[in-house]
Every structure is written in structure tokens, then in C-alpha cells.
Design a protein around this nucleic acid. Structure first.
Length: 472
DNA sequence: CTAGGGTTAG
């Protein structure tokens, strides 16, 4: 009963708590209030995870909150493994690697074994921060930290490398360690997909052949990977032939296959062909999913016109499909692209009715297009609608788009705004690109904003600062 | 977060 209630209320409760945390600027007030109210809140892992997700784009506060709960007596609350994973993910994204290791060892001292997921998170962050060799060392030694290496963690690591365009490294690792882990179909699919991601479809085909020679049977997933690869590489004819061959040979054509083809032809400008494949799939016993609709809508927005996309949107509603946030974001982008900002705003309102709240992407699209149209003020007011980060915290993209837009007109005031945004993003735990950082700093110095420049320099010297370095 | 399809421009 108790669990049921907590589960039921954890969404609104997490919203209130995370709003309070985001709103409170003063760290001592924050800590005191948390201390005073902690005993009245029914902490549970789902609730804590919910809050951590809402604080995702404010890393320092997320870690502060995590840390606060971690120091309550274990009788009152003890973090679950999943919460540790979230905290580790957040720390790693802020590139606070010391904090990552501290959290990992604290996890073990609380008798929680780091799971393969914990390591997947760590490996992913190191690879995407441009440190694949470091990631490799971590992978090779993870059994010393309580997590065994097996085929599935090997596959995960290969996949992480491939998704960050490190196929060559994945491939040589595959050759070197393959015998030890006994690769399966999944392993081969991951590597083939890796080559497809960098448009090397012939190599992907070779991997597929190797797989067959090794006695493994390709699955529908394998074929879909290759099919998508041809489209991505711009090999339309090969893609079409491959699709026909799949049909001829009686391969299972599933909804993913059709979505790939609709999207592939559409973005290549062959809208009619995309539409035809979309129309024929039902006759072949395959119902479109919302993703298929999203693909078609995006294609019409990009290569045809928004009004036709809206026809398809109304059609899916009539058929009883539930649009998701991607559906709305695609349409909103289409409307923005046609400079229909007011109608875009209408759709943003409409989202709320369909229980998909506008998300960061929604805001980012509108902010981006407004900036492109030179409407900086309007863009900033949409940014302010993110509730100063209380409703929908901005992410790295939001700041990047806005800051670079502030360099277009040569207004001194814009530099001041850019400086404030840079300061804010750093307070929220984002690591600005060197280029952005230097550009804003120079801009501030040239426009006589020495004070703010100094403040930024001070903040820079203590990374992850809010309002002082988070101690773990 | 052991593999495949929809969101961001160029």
C-alpha cells in the first residue's frame, strides 16, 4: 500500500522537490531546508531517480542533492544502485573524473556491486570525451572493480566505440579479443553497424559475410543495418536493390525496414517513392508505427511542405495513433522552417494536452530558428520561458546556440548577455567548448566588461563550481 | 546501456 502511494505520487513530488532545488540559489538555505524537510519525505529509489533526472541539466545541484541523501543515516535512507549510476553519469558528464571514482568506491563500500550498466556509463563518457584509450584500460581492468567481463559487456563496449565513430578501434579490439569472448550475432551486427555509421558499406558487407562463414545466421536486424547503411552513404540504388532482394528472398520485412526506406528515400528527395512505400506497407501486412509516421512527416516538412505534413498528422490522429514528442518536434521544426513561428507556438501549447510536455529539444528548435531569423530578443524571451531553468532546464545545445547568436549583431550589450549565459552554463556544470569560452572572454574585454570577465575566469579555475566545488 | 527505424543546420 505504502509503495503504491509512493509510486503514485513520486512524479508530482519529484517535480516539486526538483523545482525547489533549482530555484534556491543560496547553498546554505538549500541545505538547511533539505535537512528540515528530509524526515517528512518518503524517500525511495524511484523518487530519488526521478529527481536526479529532473536535475540532469544542473549537475552540481544534482550531485549536491545525491550527496545530501547519502549522508543521512542508512536507517533513514540508503541509495540504490540505479541512483549511484545516475550520479556517476552526471559527474562524468561534467568531466569530474575524481568524483566518478569516489562514487564508484563509495558504492562498493555500501555493499552495492557496480553493474555492467555502471561501467557502460563510465566507458561511454570517457569515449565521448575523446579518451578511448583510457576507456579501454578501464574495460580491461573492470573485473578488479567488481564487474566481470563477459560477452555482453564486450559487446556493449564495442557498441559504445562504434557509436562514437571509433569503428577502427572497435574492429581491432574485436580481432584481438574475439577468440576470448566468442562473438555472437550481436557482436557482428554492432561492428557492421559501426562501418555503416561512417558510410563504409562495403566493409560492413564484408563483416556480414565473415559472420556467415563463421556459421552465424544474419537476422532481420542485420539486414536493416545494411539497408540503413546504404541510405546513409547516399547509395540509393544499392538500397533499393537490397530492399528488393530482401523481399525476393523472403526475409522478414518489419516495421523498422519500412521506416528505414520511407525515411531514406524521403531525405534523399524522393518523396513520391517514400510515400508509395509507406502506402504499400499495410498491404504487406505491416502496420506503420508512430516512428514511421514521424519519418514521413519529417520528410514532407523537409522536401515537400508543412501543410502536407499536417495532413498526415491529422490522418494519424484519425487512425487513433498517439503522437509523441518527436512527432511534435518534427512538426514544430517544419513550421519554424516556414517562418510560421506563431503556429509553431500553437503546437507547443497543444503538446501539453497530449501529455508530452515540450522538452529541451522543442525549446531548442524554436530558439535556433528565431536566432537564425535574427530575432534575438524573441529568442531570449523563449529562453526565459524555460522558467529560468526551473521548468525545463536548458542543455549544452541551448547555450551554444544562444551564445553564438549573440555574436551576429555587433552590439556591446549582447556581449554582456553572452557573458552571463556563459557564467550560468558553467554554474550548471556544463563544460563550454574552448572556442566559445575564449570568444566570450575576448568579447567581454573588448566591450569593457572586465568585471564579468574576471568572474568567469575565477569560476573557470574551480571547475564544477556551484557555488564552490562539490566535495564528495 | 548486448544489435536495427523518427528530432539539430551545414
Amino acid at each position: 500500500m505504502c509503495c503504491f502511494l509512493i509510486g503514485q505520487y513520486s512524479a508530482p513530488l519529484s517535480k516539486n522537490i526538483s523545482r525547489f532545488i533549482l530555484r534556491t540559489v543560496d547553498i546554505d538555505t538549500l541545505t538547511h531546508t533539505l535537512e528540515e524537510t528530509a524526515c517528512k519525505i518518503p524517500w525511495s529509489p524511484p523518487l530519488v531517480n526521478c529527481i536526479l533526472k529532473r536535475l540532469w541539466n544542473h549537475g552540481p545541484k544534482a550531485l549536491l542533492f545525491f550527496n545530501f541523501l547519502d549522508f543521512l543515516s542508512p536507517r533513514r535512507y540508503a541509495h540504490a544502485a540505479s541512483s549511484f549510476n545516475h550520479a556517476i553519469d552526471i559527474a562524468a558528464r561534467m568531466r569530474q573524473y575524481n568524483a566518478v571514482w569516489t562514487l564508484l568506491s563509495r558504492m562498493r563500500s555500501r555493499n552495492i556491486t557496480p553493474s555492467p550498466l555502471t561501467f557502460a556509463i563510465i566507458l561511454e563518457r570517457f569515449v565521448s570525451a575523446g579518451k578511448p584509450e583510457k576507456a579501454l584500460r578501464i574495460f580491461l581492468s573492470m573485473h578488479h572493480r567488481g564487474c566481470p567481463q563477459d560477452l555482453s559487456s564486450f559487446n556493449t563496449f564495442l557498441d559504445i566505440l562504434c557509436k562514437s565513430n571509433r569503428v577502427e578501434m572497435a574492429s581491432s579490439l574485436f580481432r584481438a579479443l574475439g577468440p576470448r569472448f566468442r562473438p555472437d550475432t550481436v557482436t557482428y551486427n554492432i561492428i557492421a553497424n559501426g562501418w555503416c555509421l561512417i558510410k563504409r558499406t562495403p566493409v560492413a558487407l564484408r563483416v556480414m559475410k565473415d559472420m556467415v562463414e563463421r556459421g552465424l545466421t544474419p537476422t532481420p536486424v542485420t539486414y536493416n543495418i545494411l539497408l540503413k547503411g546504404y541510405f546513409r552513404a547516399g547509395q540509393l540504388k544499392e538500397a533499393w536493390d537490397f530492399f528488393l532482394q530482401m523481399k525476393r528472398r523472403g526475409c522478414e520485412l518489419d516495421v523498422v525496414t519500412y521506416t528505414t526506406v520511407v525515411h531514406g528515400f524521403g531525405v534523399a528527395g524522393e518523396v513520391e517513392k517514400a510515400q508509395r512505400v509507406f502506402d504499400e506497407m499495410v498491404g504487406h501486412g505491416c502496420l506503420p508505427s508512430i516512428a514511421t509516421y514521424n519519418a514521413l512527416i519529417q520528410v514532407l516538412c523537409k522536401k515537400d511542405n508543412v501543410e502536407n505534413a499536417l495532413v498526415v498528422f491529422n490522418d494519424l490522429l484519425r487512425k487513433g495513433y498517439l503522437p509523441n514528442s518527436t512527432t511534435y518536434n518534427v512538426l514544430i521544426r517544419g513550421l519554424c522552417h516556414a517562418s510560421e513561428f506563431d503556429r509553431a507556438a500553437e503546437f507547443m501549447e497543444r503538446m501539453k494536452g497530449d501529455d508530452c510536455e515540450p522538452n529541451v529539444q522543442t525549446f531548442n528548435v524554436i530558439i535556433r530558428y528565431l536566432c537564425d531569423a535574427g530575432e534575438i530578443e524573441r529568442s531570449l524571451s523563449v529562453f526565459a520561458k524555460m522558467g529560468n531553468g526551473v521548468c525545463c532546464p536548458p542543455n549544452l545545445d541551448t547555450y551554444n546556440v544562444l551564445i553564438s547568436a549573440l555574436f551576429v549583431r555587433k552590439k556591446p550589450d549582447d556581449m554582456l548577455t553572452a557573458g552571463k549565459l556563459l557564467m550560468e552554463m558553467m554554474e550548471r556544470g556544463f563544460v563550454p567548448r574552448k572556442f566559445t569560452y575564449n570568444r566570450v572572454l575576448n568579447g567581454l574585454l573588448l566591450t569593457g566588461n572586465q568585471a564579468l570577465a574576471k568572474e568567469i575566469l575565477r569560476a573557470q579555475s574551480r571547475p564544477g563550481h556551484f557555488p564552490r566545488e562539490i566535495r564528495l
